[in-house]
Design a protein around this nucleic acid. Structure first.
Length: 421
DNA sequence: CAATGCGCACCGC
DNA sequence: GCGGTGCGCATTG
């Protein structure tokens, strides 16, 4: 409940800031939510993180700083023609729809990807706690220092602080805790911070010529790439060492896995990726570890889990891809990737995992419905076509896609798996 | 003082 | 040319 409430508040706030032409950054969002609803910044940050994870809110790095976008609003006007349906829908109700297609992009530059990027892009951005180790400590000092040097970068500080604070205290769950007395919203998302720093560093470190690639919005997004991956292009800190291990160890929960899935960007980043879209994230992520493996499928490495992953890959990929290509005509891989990662152990998926999955799959709004109906992994396995089409009160178009391309696939995969076992 | 409004420059398409 | 974005400054409460 409160969650939906927060979702509304936060999205509203982001919209509001945007309309005011102010950057929707962590600090402003927290502040506005507090003013309007009295919510503590901490809580707001935590909720924001959740939204990011489920792709309801997109975290992007734009012009060197972090920004948040309302996924539902991000529309890409230039999409192909096939979305007629979408268009109509969009037209009809202003808000929500667009989400499926758009979440992909973060900021102005919308993903190069096309309509169906849903799947793929989505993944890129998720991240989660897991590691959130203390990224660069540069941030720290400012943290306890309580003083914030330049007013201009207040937000950054805030963000950083959050990160560090959080990272230290609570590696994972975003759900808050930690009443930190920060000025703004200090305790926020650990993940973000990472990005921040990167952001800061990135530009500077890069040669003038190339900057534009990242400098702009690009490398951003990787929103939450917290997992360990952060790149340390310029820096090398302890984490360099840590990084790698971290990734592998990540395993823990299904949700976690997703984050890692950077998949294709590793390769893709080059071609279209980086320039236009913010997929970049991956780029960041990709840099480190991914790169090593980079050749074909970075994702593999990211998937820590030993258990089923590989298996799924085998089963699912094939047809998922096929279906996907039929539907969209493109990037089948991505879908499969996602699927594979997900299918780890459906039975263990929590409601949040399910929601995250669908958000990542490009259906952030519908993900909310799953959450509302408290669909966890087990429930998902029991869902029938009619349940998806009518039981969730979601629009038919997305519902069909969700059922045919995800629910069915996940169920099939799951059962195949178990047969084998 | 914070919140808000908005001109303007940028950027990608 | 178009639309999204957000800095920086002006205005408002």
């Amino acid at each position: 409940m409160s969650e939906s409430k927060y979702r509304e508040w936060i999205l509203d706030t982001i919209d509001s800031l945007r309309s005011r032409k102010a950057r929707p950054d962590l600090e402003r969002i927290c502040r506005m939510v507090r003013r309007r609803h009295g919510s503590e910044p901490d809580r707001t940050c935590a909720e924001l993180e959740k939204l990011i994870q489920e792709q309801t809110v997109l975290k992007v790095n734009y012009k060197g700083s972090i920004s948040y976008r309302n996924a539902a609003k991000v529309q890409r006007r230039s999409r192909k023609k096939d979305d007629v349906a979408l268009t109509t829908a969009a037209r009809r109700s202003a808000v929500e729809e667009a989400s499926h297609s758009d979440l992909s992009n973060g900021d102005s530059a919308f993903g190069p990807v096309d309509q169906d990027e849903e799947d793929l892009e989505a993944d890129t951005s998720m991240a989660m706690d897991t590691d959130s180790n203390a990224d660069e400590e540069g941030a720290d000092e400012s943290r306890d220092g309580q003083d914030r040097p330049s007013p201009a970068r207040t937000y950054e500080d805030a963000a950083m602080n959050c990160a560090s604070a959080r990272a230290v205290s609570a590696p994972c769950s975003p759900s808050g805790n930690r009443p930190v007395p920060g000025p703004g919203c200090s305790p926020g998302s650990g993940l973000d911070c990472v990005s921040f720093q990167k952001a800061a560093e990135r530009p500077s470190s890069l040669p003038p010529s190339s900057p534009r690639a990242l400098a702009h919005n690009d490398w951003a997004y990787h929103s939450a790439v917290c997992p360990a991956e952060r790149q340390h292009p310029g820096m090398q800190r302890d984490k360099a060492a840590a990084t790698k291990p971290a990734i592998q160890s990540v395993t823990t929960s299904p949700g976690t896995l997703k984050n890692n899935v950077k998949k294709e960007d590793g390769g893709k980043a080059e071609d279209s990726g980086l320039s236009s879209d913010q997929l970049v994230p991956d780029y960041a992520a990709g840099l480190d570890e991914t790169k090593n493996v980079s050749d074909g499928r970075p994702q593999t490495l990211s998937l820590p889990s030993d258990n089923c992953t590989f298996k799924n890959k085998i089963d699912i990929s094939p047809f998922t891809a096929a279906e996907d290509s039929l539907l969209n005509g493109g990037k089948g891989d991505e879908v499969s990737v996602k699927t594979e990662k997900m299918s780890q152990n459906l039975l263990q998926w929590t409601v949040a995992d399910v929601a995250s999955y669908f958000s990542a799959a490009g259906f952030p709004e519908q993900a909310v419905a799953f959450r509302t109906q408290e669909i966890d992994g087990k429930s998902l396995l029991l869902m029938q076509r009619s349940d998806v089409l009518t039981g969730l009160s979601i629009r038919l178009g997305p519902a069909l896609k969700i059922y045919e391309r995800h629910v069915k696939v996940l169920q099939r995969t799951h059962f195949l798996e178990y047969e084998d076992l």
